[in-house]
Design a protein around this nucleic acid. Structure first.
Lengths: 233, 233
DNA sequence: ATATTTTTGGACAGCCTTGTCTAATATGTC
DNA sequence: GACATATTAGACAAGGCTGTCCAAAAATAT
């Protein structure tokens, strides 16, 4: 468990400038590792991007492996924290379910999937996940695993309250996330970001489809969809 | 356009053993680049895995950059070809739409998204896409772009024939793919494969949701879902 | 069987990277 | 101001990787 050192090392933050440099290195490490991959990144790049001498990097994190581990655990923690923050804003007592779900989907995308940290984490996992499975094991169980089941619980409650009609909340939760992610996939591969308007639009489409499948009054939304189409024609 | 050389170089395949080694190197290159990333991979590894001397690799492909480009274009072509092969088996005149769509989804997943080449391509793009956008531009337009619009056209035809009820075939097509991919995401990150049974199950869930949202007789499938649930209880 | 083409192993220079060490400098504390 | 601690630049050895060269061996074609 070589990366435990790195985790514990984060605890002692003596002076002010010390901690600042430490964070700056971590931040730069995330950017560079993400951009260049583990082997492509080198300590000089990271030091330069952190505006710090190479030796300082070694003073703080020991070696490249430990720095990488520290970066991963830091980003993972941040992402998880943000996910649960957003999850707390789930519309439990919706007045307008569609609109509130869309807003929730936008928050989720913008703050967790599409933000800097989310992008970093995805790339780090993609490039090194196969090689360091233990490093990302925590993310896998505490991250998406927990988010999924928490989201599933919210959906189950909505269904119980009569707002949804679903067989299996777990499947519904995962499909909800999949739908919300629809348009993100390709741009994410190339490190591009979606503009806010397209993000909003995608969320709306996703939620509309989700509610067509799982909404309580599906015939109503079917009618509405027909009406909209007729109006456009 | 440094990678054009690599493409054209593929044309002359003089002797038998020559071409065999060439392919073997390409194959090994795909594996190693994918496993280790561009900077992590080295020519000795690839040569060893191709059961060939290092010099032979240089004889065939010039240098690491060109070899990488050749690997990418080869895998891209294979994946595209396979995608359109599967696309040709889309159920245009369905007798049992649900079952035939599920079977189609399984074919798509197994042969295009989840197979070796698909996995390679995804990882290569993920790790190097940001750095070599020109290299993957072809994939982006000829790959998913074409598949999406082809799939959208199929859905539009199904809708016209009265089998589906959809507003926007493009969105439906992308959401279909997103739903089919639901369970693939995480395992794909870690280079794991889904067992056949889970793959089948996921496809079934995806298609069921898709048809609940876009099926012609949605109230019917709603009734059926209710019936199933009652039966289980 | 001979001529041609490919392949091989090994040696090599040049370069980059890691991680250590040092002495000098800066930063902050008392 | 004196002290301790952090930081810096630079030099350094060890090792890895790329890409080239060469001569011998193997495979292939005529």
């Amino acid at each position: 468990m070589f990366f435990m050192d790195a985790i514990n090392a984060t605890d002692r933050l003596p002076t002010r400038g010390h901690a600042a440099k430490r964070l700056s290195i971590l931040e730069a490490g995330a950017r560079v590792f993400c951009r260049e991959g583990y082997s492509g990144a080198n300590i000089d790049m990271i030091a330069a991007e952190a505006a710090v001498s190479r030796q300082t990097v070694y003073n703080h994190y020991g070696d490249k492996d430990k720095l990488f581990a520290a970066v991963v655990t830091e980003i993972t923690q941040r992402c998880n924290a943000r996910s649960f923050e957003v999850l707390a804003t789930f519309p439990d007592q919706p007045e307008n379910l569609e609109n509130e779900l869309i807003a929730f989907a936008v928050r989720l995308t913008r703050n967790c999937l599409c933000d800097e940290d989310g992008k970093y984490l995805r790339k780090l996992i993609q490039s090194e996940g196969e090689r360091h499975p233990q490093l990302f094991a925590g993310w896998r169980t505490d991250g998406p695993g927990k988010v999924w089941s928490a989201l599933a619980a919210r959906f189950a409650r909505l269904a119980y309250a009569g707002h949804l009609d679903l067989d299996d909340p777990d499947i519904a939760a995962r499909q909800f996330l999949a739908l919300v992610n629809t348009e993100l996939q390709i741009p994410a591969l190339f490190g591009e970001k979606l503009e806010s308007s397209r993000l909003q639009e995608t969320a709306a489409c996703a939620v509309r489809t989700f509610l067509r499948a799982y909404g309580r009054n599906r015939s109503d939304s079917q009618e509405m969809a027909r009406g909209e189409r007729a109006l456009r024609a």
